[in-house]
Amino acid sequence: MTDAETTTHGASERTALPVEETADLVSRISDNVERVIVGHTDAIEHILITLFARGHLLLEDVPGVGKTMLARSIARSIDCSFKRVQFTPDLLPSDVTGVNVFDQKTREFEFQPGPVFGNVVLGDEINRAPPKTQSALLEAMEESQVTVDGTTHPLPNPFTVIATQNDVELSRTYELPIAEIDRFMKKLRLGYPNHADETEMLGRVANRHPIETLEAVATTEDVLRARETVSDVEVSEPIRSYVSKLATYTRDNAELGVSPRGSIALVRAAQARAVLDAREYVVPDDVQTELPSVWAHRIRPATGSETGETVAQAALEAVAVE
């Protein structure tokens, strides 16, 4: 989550897109991505919500289910730069952020931006890199800027990180601590496609991969304006109170509940969800739809029989809608 980003780039003079147009924009992007990615309609929606709510996304999955392809499709659809970092145990922080290189001609150091300088950054298998390198990326996410040798370099806008975690080969990995995971707005699993989807997918890629012919349906300007739209969505007092009570419930019923940062993330995601529905205000349904993907990874359950998901679900059932 990036509060700082808002301040860095300012609540600029950019005019917000009307909600109807924004909703239309989202469905255009979504449709476009689905030309490449079969199934996973919900996941695409979640990623777009993260994008418009200025958040970052953590994908936890086995290799080969199309994580990279998904991220590339989205980047291509909104006509913005796409960067990919493969995290390995020997990756250094400067490999992510970039380094100052001495230019022989100008006799000056020149900053060589690292792969983090992209609109959509895919951090692949982030848990394979040592914590120092992980934190370089996480700091960039938090601050929307990178500081190398005392010089601060702002990251491009929009800036969204899609990190993936491989949860099958756990040897020689550095699991992300909860405090770090908290910085991702959402955590998703794609999972294997079902039979029909896989059949369909195989048919599409058999000859020529559709990603190569995918065309942009939106501009980065559109995305930035849509972000303004999301920020303008009204969050009424009953909704704020409802979210607070949900958070309190997780704090009372788990070893580690949801932080205030988690509550903010939920409200932002709910705002984006309202925009998807072409609505200018958040209703409890938005909160309920967003809660599992925004909160489950932030909760450490009290007992082994529970998971973050079950606690989140219990909160939804137990806390009365206001």
């Binding site: 209703v283 409890p284 349904d285 309920q288 806390v319 809608v321």
Partner: peptide, 9 residues
């Protein structure tokens, strides 16, 4: 209406 049920649902 159940406590956790939104009016819409």
């Amino acid at each position: 209406r159940r406590p956790g049920e939104t009016p819409r649902r």
